[in-house]
Design a protein around this nucleic acid. Structure first.
Lengths: 228, 228
DNA sequence: TTAAGATTCAAACGAACGTATGAATTGTTT
DNA sequence: AAACAATTCATACGTTCGTTTGAATCTTAA
């Protein structure tokens, strides 16, 4: 069976690349590491994907395609059910970030490995990676932005955009930095095993995000660094 | 004057490294790029710093030393003034994140360049970089964590730790990703010039962070993705 | 069974990497 | 001015990088 072999090789490369890019970053990962971990020949990456950059693109495309179409159809469903009335902010936030966090427990969608790769990549403004993310994300972000505008008609649009931005940051960091911060500090987050921690991350994060989204609007006059 | 020359060379290297590490990351930046931008000889980095890794360490140490001692003394001052009573959460958040954001407008402390480097580095779990950050950050994080515990005696400590974590993420992303997200989407955040945007970032972020910090506690039972 | 196509393989390519060296230059001290 | 130390410089070292190549192997189909 030729197809099985091809798929195996391609997917083994994608899996290895996903994991290694997550741990060491794009520039910190070599083709030899990838092909070695995937147990394929060095030339296989260039044969199947063309180049290292194309491999990175495919690593993202494989996961983001599903994630974002899921987000879109979830939003469509919510809006269909609401019959023209604005959605609740919590519904929107839940749909966007809940779908994302749901990947953590689903190894077939990339699991924590892909989530952490995505989290760290959002702060790496490498030119071609930004292009890939922009390509995959533009439509989804626009749809959710508009939904939030309708859900919060009294909040200035600029403020909503910023707070969406902050929510993305808190989330991406909550995922990507989970281990990093635990090492940076020696915080003992009580005795939660890792599945417990994961189960509880979503409600914890959601409370935080909604609290931030619905916070009182800032006052811009006479603001100083020391808060006086 | 020999000293002036030494300092010039060292600082030019540090400045160039800071900027290039911010743009391209550690692995994506070569010594030849750094020495070329700094207009010094290729061997100067190894002469003055010993290695590329040591240079990276020094780039952080140069800025984090001041930042964190500032944070500590600010907290000391606040606690001295409060005469044993717990601080207000907003004071603590202001002291920690306000000091950080204050760097943005202060070129002599690194400005936006260093802030964005710091932001993107927190999601890069490279071994030796983590060690540097841990070294510089451990004391400050512990002090502020304890202050938050006292300020919010009714909130479980694990919850506070998580929310501090989320706040760090929102902030780091707000800084590091400012341009990235503006490119990912084509959001027009009205007609604010960049200094206006910077002036308003702090109050905007602070409102969001405090809203998240003081949000209702999450309910862990029967939580589903769609929030029903 | 055999020809054609798809995939894997070992080996090599030039380029760029971080680092080291020893001579040349500059600055300081006597 | 001479001796000494500190710094800069051009150059080269050995490695590793991403990519390419052409032969070998495997799969599919006539």
């Amino acid at each position: 069976m030729a197809e099985a072999r091809i798929v195996d090789t391609r997917e083994r490369i994608l899996d290895a690349g996903e994991r290694l890019f997550m741990v060491h970053g794009y520039d910190g990962t070599s083709m030899r590491q990838i092909t070695s971990e995937a147990a394929v020949n060095l030339a296989a990456v260039n044969y199947h994907f063309g180049s290292k950059e194309s491999l990175m693109q495919e690593v993202f495309r494989r996961r983001l395609g599903w994630l974002n179409s899921e987000r879109i159809s979830l939003l469509n469903k919510l809006e269909a059910e609401s019959e023209g009335k604005p959605l609740k902010p919590s519904q929107i936030v839940d749909a966007f970030f809940g779908t994302l966090l749901g990947i953590a427990a689903d190894e077939s969608r990339g699991g924590m490995t892909f989530l952490r790769l995505l989290g760290r990549t959002l702060t790496e403004p490498s030119e071609f990676i930004r292009a890939v993310l922009m390509d995959e994300y533009a439509e989804v972000l626009e749809r959710y932005k508009q939904a939030l505008f309708r859900a919060l008609p009294d909040v200035p649009k600029a403020e909503i955009v910023w707070r969406f931005h902050f929510m993305l940051g808190a989330t991406s960091y909550a995922i990507a930095g989970t281990d990093a911060l635990r090492v940076i500090t020696d915080w003992q987050i009580e005795a939660e095993d890792s599945t417990d921690r994961l189960d509880r991350l979503l409600p914890r994060l959601m409370s935080f995000l909604l609290g931030g989204l619905r916070a009182p609007l800032p006052q811009f006059e006479s603001v100083t660094v020391d808060g006086k």
